[in-house]
Nucleic acid binder design. Structure first.
Lengths: 140, 140
DNA sequence: GTACATGCAAAACTTTTGCAGTATG
DNA sequence: CATACTGCAAAAGTTTTGCATGTAC
């Protein structure tokens, strides 16, 4: 039975099997919300072996379904990558609560062009991380 | 004898002692350049105990003298925080030869405004790293 | 002189791997 | 029904801690 779930479909299309543990890990990540640690996923799924959790997360990282971010306190958290848009994006991270928002920007394209002409580099990959306060932490 | 070094001065002013191992760690970080891992620092200083390296790095993290970043491949690297306050700039790094070029851009300000309005975040600090091929590596 | 810092070694974690059994496509 | 995936347990790797000794201030 083919799944309607976008993540499960991608896994399947890339030649990976859709097993119970894998579905459970994906569901749990969604349940945990915006960001989560490997440990949180593991604790939420005591029935699934540790190794499987790490293997699944490694696979998802390789397929760019999740990505890592370092919070100000040094904690490393994971986040599901935008599920509907396959577009290239970056993160704004809230220094207070750790909430991560994604953004894309046309301004970014212009920035890259500026840099290319200033430095003579042909810019390929880039990583941009912005830190600030999210709307709810601003109100506190 | 008071030190002229900005990092050493800050350590001292915050009530921490200026010991040989601490100076060595700071010097090594500068030597290692833009990015370095805990392991690289450790290997460059076989005379200093592992524990001291980790303790020093933890201290520096708490004092916000270094910060962590996750590279695309998942590696966690550290970088020294703003020592040269003269001008705010960022780096373009050549994926082939490791050459680093600096740039500043007005386009960046516009980008930050775009992001603020898209996400509702109030953007404070930011870190931008671009990867690509420098002019000489493009010719190869 | 007195804390604070260090080095060593052991402990506490975290992540990966080997292998035999299981279940997906 | 082949083989990718799983769970377990052991291994490998990383960071922290306890304690006696050393040293910056």
């Amino acid at each position: 039975m083919p799944s309607i779930d976008p993540i499960e479909r991608t896994l399947s299309r890339q030649g990976h099997r859709l097993t119970g543990p894998r579905r459970a890990v994906v569901d749990t990540m969604r349940l945990l919300g915006n960001h989560f640690t490997a440990e949180e996923v593991q604790q939420a799924l005591p029935a699934v072996g540790r190794a499987t959790i790490f293997r699944t997360m490694k696979l998802m990282r390789e397929l760019e379904m999740i990505c890592q971010v370092v919070l100000d306190d040094g904690t490393i958290v994971y986040q599901l990558v935008g599920e509907d848009e396959s577009e290239h994006h970056h993160h704004v991270i809230c220094s207070d609560c750790g909430k991560v928002a994604e953004f894309t920007s046309d301004g970014l394209e212009r920035l890259l062009e500026d840099v290319a002409s200033m430095t003579g580099f042909e810019v390929g990959a880039h990583r941009i991380e912005l830190y600030g306060q999210c709307d709810s932490c601003q109100k506190k």
